[in-house]
């Protein structure tokens, strides 16, 4: 047994090596997607701290407006549909890119970008409306926690949109080469993970407030 095999076995990461059991480093695609997965999980753990903060503080309105008065569920439903369908078109786009059909990829990623931008626009509109009626982040502990949690998700979506535009430009410039495909796989993991976090935001923040 070689030294690499021994370390792999003692740490339990034997199947990072998918090349059929022979010793040697795992392929870059495997290592990168696993590392990115670890990053996503740590990102979700950061969000969990903010979720806990929000859950603790959601009742502390300090005499100010509560979630029930502030939230517009129709807006939330549209935002949810935008993110859900953008996740879908992002997934389909990456399938078509693996199949090397570039026009379908451009169309689908264009739709993904537009849906993400609509989501951000709606969220910005909601925030601006809340600040305008005196319910900004400094009004109460509830609103501080709300803006921190939902704002951080919005910041992630903004970064995702910049990344998406960059990846489409890179695909156009370099063609569907191996490293471009690898980065796009990471991007779609990121985009789907944002959708998972939004499911939690939608349920815990908006829908819980409807009848409480």
């Amino acid at each position: 047994m070689s030294a690499t095999e021994a370390t792999a076995e003692s740490t339990g990461v034997t199947n990072l090596n998918v090349s059929g059991g022979e010793a040697g480093p795992a392929p870059v695609a495997i290592v990168v997607s696993y590392g990115f997965w670890i990053f996503l999980l740590s990102d979700i753990i950061m969000f969990s701290a903010l979720f806990a903060t929000y859950a603790v503080l959601s009742g502390q309105t300090d005499g100010g407006p509560s979630g029930r008065e502030l939230f517009d569920t129709r807006n939330v439903a549209i935002e949810t549909l935008c993110l859900l369908f953008s996740s879908y078109t992002c997934g389909l786009g990456s399938v078509f890119l693996e199949r090397r059909s570039l026009p379908a990829f451009y169309v689908l990623f264009g739709i993904t970008f537009v849906l993400g931008a609509i989501f951000l626009g709606l969220e910005f509109h909601e925030f601006a409306g809340m600040v305008a009626r005196g319910a900004g982040p400094s009004r109460s502990a509830f609103l501080s926690a709300f803006f921190a949690l939902v704002g951080l998700h919005g910041a992630h979506v903004s970064i995702g949109l910049i990344w998406l535009a960059f990846m489409v430009a890179q695909t156009a410039a370099k063609g569907p080469r191996e490293f471009v495909l690898r980065r796009l796989r990471c991007f779609s993991l990121f985009w789907h993970a944002l959708d998972i976090i939004w499911v939690a935001v939608m349920s815990l923040v908006y829908l819980m407030a409807v009848r409480v």
Partner: peptide, 21 residues
Amino acid sequence: NTVLALAFGILIVTLVVSGSL
């Protein structure tokens, strides 16, 4: 490996959220 990392993430998230509450 993915599933093991996910399980660990879920453990931490559960500890943070339920512990704080």
